[in-house]
């Protein structure tokens, strides 16, 4: 991986072309639920360190892209690569065969996911939510995991809530814990699946602020599905507009929000940006 790219193309003060090789690559990926085609031979790439937002109407396959990457959803055809390695396949004698659980576990360690409904573990305290996976899965010593857990809680502004249980927190606080929990496993890629959609409007800001802080980290690759267009415009290097299981249009936030080329993109943006018209 070559991170020193001479063609500096900056947006939001960051280097867009951080690596030549994509850290994520979808190669003609097909995903069907019964007869319904969710992803239709999707080609899609994300560069190392890139912050990409996926927008589009519901049912366009946005969340499915994230769920496939997190190995929560299998693919029907095509190949997904993460860090240059096939995710749902593995090589054997120059042939791609379906991935074993061992391979999936190895690949998963590079990814972290934040869910729409937070999905915190209700039977564990906030701090335990953050330390359980590092200790049980990552083999990190308890004391070290707690130290790192407290640092992360500090970062999301919830150090004083460490010993509470998730149900004692507000939705916005729970989602900040959700972000910290994913970060505790030190992923290279963070997936955000509509992280603010389940929140009361007044709690959205605190979660977006945390995500914004993360977006400033150069090494972290971020893939975000959201309906917060204003926010997407601020933090993204690139916006992908999904429609019917394909990328209908993509470009920098300026290109997409100020001068969309496709009629479908224009119609969608008009509908979400001025819902009163």
């Amino acid at each position: 991986m070559n991170d020193a790219n001479p063609d500096r193309d900056t947006h939001n003060g960051r280097d867009v072309n951080k690596g030549r090789d994509p850290i994520i690559k979808f190669d003609k990926v097909v995903k069907r639920f019964g007869d319904h085609v969710v992803l239709d031979e999707l080609d899609f790439e994300v560069k190392r360190g890139e912050k990409v937002t996926i927008i589009g109407p519901s049912g366009s396959g946005k969340s499915t892209v994230l769920r496939i990457l997190m190995t929560l959803e299998e693919i029907n055809d095509g190949v997904v690569y993460v860090g240059g390695q096939p995710l749902w396949h593995q090589w054997r004698r120059e042939q791609l065969i379906p991935a074993s659980e061992q391979h999936l576990r190895q690949m998963r360690s590079q990814l972290g996911m934040v869910f729409q409904q937070f999905n915190l573990f209700p039977h564990m305290t906030v701090l335990r939510n953050l330390t359980e996976a590092p200790v049980q899965v990552g083999g990190v010593a308890k004391a070290e995991a707690r130290k790192r857990g407290m640092e992360l809680l500090e970062m999301v502004g919830l150090a004083d809530q460490a010993n509470k249980y998730p149900h004692q927190l507000s939705g916005g606080q729970q989602q900040r814990v959700g972000i910290a929990r994913a970060l505790a496993m030190r992923p290279k890629i963070m997936l955000f699946d509509e992280p603010t959609s389940a929140l009361d409007p007044e709690l959205v800001g605190e979660v977006l602020n945390v995500i914004r802080t993360l977006a400033d980290e150069h090494d972290l690759t971020m893939l975000l599905v959201t309906h917060e267009m204003h926010f997407a415009r601020q933090v993204s290097d690139r916006i992908c507009f999904f429609d019917k299981g394909r990328i209908k249009e993509q470009g920098t936030p300026e290109e997409i929000f100020t001068a969309p080329k496709e009629e479908r993109t224009r119609a969608f943006l008009k509908a979400v940006l001025d819902p009163d018209d």
Binding site: M70, R108, F115, F121, A133, A182
Partner: peptide, 23 residues
């Protein structure tokens, strides 16, 4: 969703059962 959260954090199926599901 609990199962998915545990998978996303890379729990093995055994630890998922003992640490997340059964409690």
């Amino acid at each position: 969703e609990q199962y998915e959260a545990a998978t996303a954090l890379n729990f093995t199926s055994r630890k998922r059962l003992w640490r997340i599901t059964l409690p």
